[in-house]
């Protein structure tokens, strides 16, 4: 027998929401401990870097367009482009390279 799809969805939604909510509820004070503070300061940079590379290389139809998108994003971000600009131009460069290759 298959379970009820809506119950499955509610179970997964409940678990996922609690994972996100619990730290926000229980960590209400500013952490004073220098080590923990530094750790949490570095978390986003490490997480986002790990998620981006090498996953970006296999995100598109071929490696060349992925490299074009990656390179474009790095250059524009280094020049201080906004999130929107960096993201859209990276998409465009993937599109153009895939038209050529």
């Amino acid at each position: 027998m298959r379970g009820n799809i809506y119950l499955y969805i509610l179970v997964m939604a409940g678990v996922t929401y609690l994972i996100r909510l619990i730290p926000l509820i229980f960590m209400r004070k500013e952490i004073r401990n220098v080590y923990l503070k530094s750790f949490l300061y570095y978390v986003p940079y490490v997480t986002l870097a790990v998620m981006t590379f090498p996953a970006i290389l296999s995100a598109t139809a071929n490696l060349w367009s992925a490299l074009a998108g990656f390179g474009t994003a790095l250059i524009l971000a280094y020049r201080g482009g906004s999130l929107f600009k960096v993201s859209i131009v990276a998409c465009l460069s993937v599109f153009i390279v895939e038209l050529m290759v």
Partner: peptide
Amino acid sequence: SALSVALYGMFIAV
């Protein structure tokens, strides 16, 4: 395929 790179582009911009 082109849109798939949008999220990574954003991470890089961050």
